[in-house]
Simulated scan of single mutants.
Amino acid sequence: MASAERHSVFYAEFQARKKDILKDLEDPINLTRANEGTASLQKILVDAAGDLPAYDQRQYETQIKELQQKIESERNRSVPTTRFAFRKKAAVKSASQGSSTSPTKPATETATPEIASQSMSIASRTSSYIGWSSVSLESSALIVSDLDSCIVNLIEHRENTSLSKTPAINSVHVKNLTKTILLLPHIEGSAILDHLQDCIVVVACQQFRIHSSQNSTILLLTPSHPIIEYCSSLSFGSYPRLSSSSAELGPSKHAEVQDFGHLLQTPSPNWHLLSSSEEEVCHQRIERLLDTPPDNALLRIADILNT
């Protein structure tokens, strides 16, 4: 990869991560995630330091410092401050003045409203089939985490005919999946995946990034370069044309993967493109899976993942 192209790819990755951090800072409940994201951003800058011009590196370092300052500011703002003041002692009335006193009203406690999560969440499940009927539709952001031997089917909603169309999802964050099949519809924004092992992911999105994952297959449609980092044994193929709407999503760069964990000017050993025959087999099995009742589908999950 030419130096200018590597710089361009790094810039896109840096800005995408920075955007996610700034989004997290809009809600105090995500402060820890914003801090972790900034630490990760600093790490990829350190790793790429030898490949960046000195001026560009200083600019990136300045942006990271600004993020750290914002996080510290938000952290201080979220800690309530208590003001102390000395109170004058109430004058003690003498017995001759009478003892007519009115009962003191207890102080009214102000209830602190709970901060509600602004994301749909699918979490902590084992050997489960999860469709639209299991997901709250109150948000356009989706978080999927801590699944083992599950099927998440959000491409089709055949089990819930009350939905006139698939609900829109603006972004998806996926973390800690093992032996799971994740079927996602068109994501209007980014799909960010972390720590997947022995999984199949089907997704169409504007930006795709996957970190610290192994032995997984990604059937993808995206107009931008997919980015992988600290991954191994990943397979990439095209998004299956499962409905008329999927044909309208346009061209894809799923085959133009950029490996941020492999900075040498040689092909990355951490991913490969499925052959046309391998891709066709994957597509056919996903289509059959969508037509299979949930209980039977779970029985076949091992066979599908092992192919």
Rank of each mutant, 00 (worst) to 15 (best):
I155G: 01
L163S: 04
L154S: 08
L147A: 04
S140C: 10
I130A: 03
T108P: 00
E109Q: 15
A168D: 10
S127P: 04
D148T: 15
P167D: 08
S140H: 06
I155C: 05
T126V: 11
T161C: 03
S119L: 10
A107H: 09
K175T: 07
M120G: 02
T104A: 09
A116I: 11
P113Y: 07
H173V: 13
K105G: 04
D146T: 11
E109Y: 12
A168G: 08
M120K: 08
S164L: 14
N160C: 13
I151V: 07
S102M: 07
P167F: 04
S128H: 06
E109R: 15
A116N: 05
N170G: 08
N153S: 01
T166A: 09
R125N: 14
A168M: 11
S127Q: 09
T101R: 09
S149H: 06
S162Y: 07
T110V: 15
S162A: 12
C150D: 03
E109N: 14
T110K: 15
T110W: 13
H173F: 09
V135P: 01
T166E: 12
H157W: 08
Y129L: 02
T112Q: 13
S127F: 06
P167K: 02
D146A: 07
D148F: 14
A116W: 00
L142S: 03
L177G: 00
T112M: 13
L147K: 01
H157D: 07
T126C: 11
K105I: 13
V174M: 02
N170D: 15
P113L: 09
V172I: 05
L154W: 01
I169L: 02
S140W: 02
L177R: 02
S102E: 04
S128P: 07
I151P: 00
P113V: 02
S145D: 08
T112C: 13
R125D: 13
C150N: 05
T126F: 09
E114T: 10
V152E: 01
S124M: 12
S127H: 12
E138D: 12
I143V: 14
T112Y: 06
S119Y: 11
W132R: 05
C150R: 01
M120A: 11
T126L: 10
V174Y: 00
D146V: 10
T101P: 02
E156T: 15
C150F: 04
S117Y: 05
S171Q: 03
S139E: 00
S162I: 07
N176T: 14
L137V: 05
Y129E: 05
V174N: 02
L154H: 03
L137S: 06
H173C: 05
I115H: 08
V144D: 03
P113K: 07
S127G: 10
E109K: 14
R125S: 14
A141G: 07
T108H: 08
W132C: 11
I155Y: 06
